[in-house]
Simulated assay, not measured.
Amino acid sequence: MNTLGRSGVEVSALAFGAAVIGNLYTEITEEQAHEAVTAAWQRGIRYFDTAPHYGLGLSERRLGAALSQYPRSAFTISTKVGRRLEPAEGGGDDLANGFAVPATRRRVWDFSADGVRRTLDASLERLGLDRVDVVYLHDPDDHAEQAFREGYPALEKLRSEGVVGAIGAGMNQAEMLTRFVRDTDVDVVLCAGRYTLLDQRALTELLPAAVERGTSVVVGGAFNSGLLADPKPGATYNYAAAPPELLDRALHLKSLADRHGTTLRAAALAFCAAHPAVASVLVGTRSAAEVHDCADQFETAVPAAFWQELRDTGLLPADAPVPAEEPS
């Protein structure tokens, strides 16, 4: 277990991302969602991340139900604020936002202090919990002023009151997260898709700033939304069809991994975990089988010769940390 910043909140090195059990892209059953969470527990995963955005609350409800069978002190859970859910009329589905659920609610951007409190209270109700361990400001890209002026101080107050143990921000970019690390007292930032085998932009400023400040980083999107899990025509990158040049690069990485006797999935996870600022790697899985596969890959040592070839051929920057070679 690793501690988030100076918070005392502990997380497992591999974490369960619960967006998928909120019916991300396609529907899964209640039973499948429950089995995925149970499999994560069986594999020693003790950090679970969710958000109201994921399936308009479905992810939080399913995650809370599945975790109710375990002692509350035995796991760490994070959720997010910034998108308030309100009742909606008109029917239809939420696929335009990526989730195969009925559009019975609508999202309202709200990083105000009142919005943060209300959103967290609603999340606790859906989760069936009296507290969460970590709260992130969720995707404040277009709402920076309100997020820094109102949302962040509201989280700081919740932390000082002991309502939450750790606070931070979660985004699909590195630049504003660097600002959070440098200009606020966040414990952790969740950086999705910006520190992977295909995209190391977090290496430039975010990760060094986190090391300097003693702030933890949780890395999400280790597979860049699918491309690094199974590179093939039609694979997704950044939640859209992968550009041809990135598909070619991913296929090349896969062939190198195969040649070195490992898998691209194992390498993708190991790379994210190797940086000293990274406390946990967050992976979204939709079934027990996917959970077990991710755990297996995470436990697999990747040969040092693989990393050396990536550096020698310019596929990885020379200053990107890689795992220490495991003794044979």
Rank of each mutant, 00 (worst) to 15 (best):
M1S: 05
N2I: 12
N2S: 07
A15M: 10
I21E: 03
I21M: 04
E27M: 06
I28M: 07
H34Y: 08
E35K: 07
V37R: 06
T38N: 07
Y47D: 15
T50V: 15
T50P: 04
T50R: 14
A51E: 07
G55D: 13
S68A: 15
Q69L: 02
R72A: 15
R72M: 11
S73M: 09
S78Y: 05
K80N: 06
G82R: 08
R83V: 13
R84M: 08
L85N: 01
P87N: 04
G92M: 05
D93N: 10
A96G: 09
A96F: 10
N97Y: 11
A103D: 02
R106W: 02
F111E: 05
F111S: 05
D114W: 11
V116S: 04
T119I: 10
T119M: 04
A122V: 12
V132L: 07
D133F: 11
V134N: 10
V135A: 09
V135P: 02
H143C: 09
E145H: 02
E145A: 08
Q146E: 14
L155W: 14
R159I: 12
G162K: 02
A166P: 03
A174I: 09
A174K: 03
A174M: 03
E175R: 08
M176E: 11
V181R: 00
V181E: 01
D183C: 03
V188W: 09
G193C: 11
Y195A: 01
Y195P: 02
L198M: 11
D199K: 15
L206F: 08
L207Y: 03
L207I: 06
E212I: 13
V218A: 09
V218S: 04
G226V: 00
N238I: 02
N238Y: 10
A241E: 14
L246H: 08
L246F: 06
L247C: 07
D248R: 12
H252K: 06
H260K: 07
G261H: 11
A266D: 10
A274V: 08
H275W: 01
A277K: 02
A279R: 09
L282C: 09
L282W: 02
S287D: 02
S287I: 15
V291D: 07
V291I: 14
V291Y: 07
D296E: 15
Q297L: 07
E299I: 11
P303F: 15
R311D: 08
G314C: 10
L315V: 13
V322I: 13
P323A: 14
A324K: 01
S328I: 13
